[in-house]
Design a binder for these strands. Structure first.
Lengths: 336, 336
DNA sequence: GTGAAAGCGCTAACAC
DNA sequence: GTGTTAGCGCTTTCAC
């Protein structure tokens, strides 16, 4: 087992004390310029790497950030991670990745087993059905900061980063209206989730603004998958009075709905408009291409991580809630 | 800053020594059954969590695994990660995620800055253009094991996990031939990559087996993106003698090719067959649906991680090369 | 400006 | 079966 080079090795080689080496390496305190250069040169020559276990032990910090989220296998989350990683990388922080599979039990288990002592902070997007948030609060109480993104619990006082669900939804529905659709249905997400409510509210308010009626039966709640979207659309088609457009809570469900419509021989766009939310790359691949609200996923990752780093840096950093706007993207699925 | 509970705290409360606590906690050596239970109970009560920095310092181990790969924003890699995470989670290992953006420079920088002392092992899928592998060897020389997956360098002697690129490609092309296509082109990946070569070889051998001619101009190399696929297909269409089917190195490029064909008014399937590789979920969403070879991405993640854990467990574990078979999935794009 | 020494939380001889 | 002690690699008083 090749032992790693330590500051002791450097000290010995240079015939100076470890404390001087330590000081020189960290570029702090007053160390003789010449000594510092010698140390740096030797460190470089020996390919010295600080042992984070040791520094962590002393400083009570590890340069590790945990990221806890439901999935990585979709466009949104994988892009958020890429954004997080981008700033973490710049600042020399490690990302420790935990995947909950959207299971509250797994989420709880992960948090419980978390070696908080080994972490400088957490970035979390909560599971769909998780309404308990006490475990998060406990972690924060031990002094480890958390920043939530996308799926945020409103009971916890800390920084949060999300897209502007309300306005995005509003804009999507208004686009539908401006395109000439009048009977607009909503394929929604799981009812308990905060952003499901926000998008629904945006939907309702857009209808209200344009004096369009709300048909309660045209609002269908279910999960986030394509299959859910397909089933929801079928549900809508069963009704006597059919809508002429659908606002889906996300692109996956919108695409599921498109599949259902195609099966039923309904022409997307001309006969029934569809708009999604996310701007998943598949929305340009499906036919017709899918109109949607682009979420700033990468930016959300970056901002979350930046905020977390601020919390870590300042003990009493005042929590911020960042809401990033989405962008309406018009494609074929809303062309009559 | 809430200090964490340490074994010292437990010892003090129970009026015993830290070493007894340590032994009881680790369920090793002979500790009095009664003492052990008392310790466990107290640990539980105080919500004790081991400090990994401390254990890591002593044991020279951290229970951290680094995963280094080009992207997380695609189906294949995000699924591999999920597989890795699955076994890591079971065994109480952390995943430290590094994303290279497929840049050899970034890959090198990550490896160089790696605090190897903080890692028990690495899981790596190399960057496209990375032909230098000395940096990997250096890490291994320090005693930290590496397992490569998917994109593996053949110069390094260690465990590797990959799909059966050769046979998958062979099967894909044979399926094309069996479906009645005779003039088969190949949209390939970057030339330097090992699996690009393997898939190409499978392509060539399938043609040879069926006595079909190889047209060098029908083999186009470029990157992995959808745009690359589109451009490659356009390239093929320019030629006097056009192929009647395309085997694409992956689904992304296949879909790019489909887009190109559609633009040119060529009917996919009847006029030109297309088959991809991966079984990205989009392959069922595109129209027509895309035939492909399903890669066992999740399984690849699991097996890689299992192998790495074996390397970590046994100093002199003999490297294994695992090759997992793909599965032919017939869909509309190869129906004449 | 530099060195000696204590200590972060834990494990592993070594005593008894 | 349990306690004492040294030490993992590093930072940080406290001397000088």
């Amino acid at each position: 087992m090749g032992r790693f080079v330590t500051i002791k090795d450097i000290a010995k080689k240079l015939n100076i004390s470890v404390s001087t080496v330590s000081r020189a390496l960290r570029d702090t305190y007053d160390v003789n310029q010449e000594t510092r250069e010698k140390v740096l040169a030797m460190a470089n020559e020996l390919n010295y790497r600080p042992n984070f276990n040791a520094t962590g032990l002393v400083n009570r910090s590890s340069h590790n950030l945990a990221v806890i989220l439901p999935f990585v296998t979709n466009y949104y989350f994988s892009t958020v991670i890429t954004g997080i990683q981008e700033v973490a990388y710049q600042q020399d922080y490690n990302i420790i990745l935990h995947i909950t599979n959207d299971s509250p039990e797994r989420e709880l288990a992960i948090i419980k087993n978390l070696a908080a002592s080994n972490l400088d902070g957490l970035l979390i997007s909560v599971s769909s059905d998780s309404d308990a948030t006490a475990h998060f609060q406990k972690v924060m109480d031990t002094g480890v900061p958390i920043v939530f993104f996308d799926r945020v619990p409103d009971t916890i006082h800390t920084s949060k980063v999300m897209q502007d669900d309300y306005n995005g939804a509003f804009e999507a529905v208004e686009h539908l209206i401006n395109s000439g659709y009048r009977n607009i249905a909503h394929i929604a997400g799981p009812e308990g989730l905060d952003f499901t409510q926000k998008r629904k509210k945006g939907f309702l308010d857009a209808l209200a603004k344009h004096n369009l009626p709300v048909n309660e039966r045209w609002i269908v709640h279910s999960g986030f998958s394509q299959e859910n979207g397909e089933a929801d659309a079928l549900e809508l088609l069963k009704q006597k009075k059919r809508p002429d457009a659908i606002f889906a809570v996300n692109d996956r469900k919108a695409i599921g709905a498109m599949i259902a419509l195609k099966k039923k021989g309904i022409r997307i766009g001309t006969q029934m408009g569809i708009i999604g939310f996310t701007n998943d790359p598949v929305s340009t691949i499906v036919s017709p291409t899918l109109s949607t609200i682009a979420e700033p996923a990468f930016e959300i990752g970056k901002r979350s991580c930046e905020l977390l780093l601020k919390h870590i840096g300042k003990r009493n950093f005042i929590p911020e809630e960042v809401i990033l706007p989405g962008t309406l993207i018009k494609r074929e699925s809303t062309r009559r």
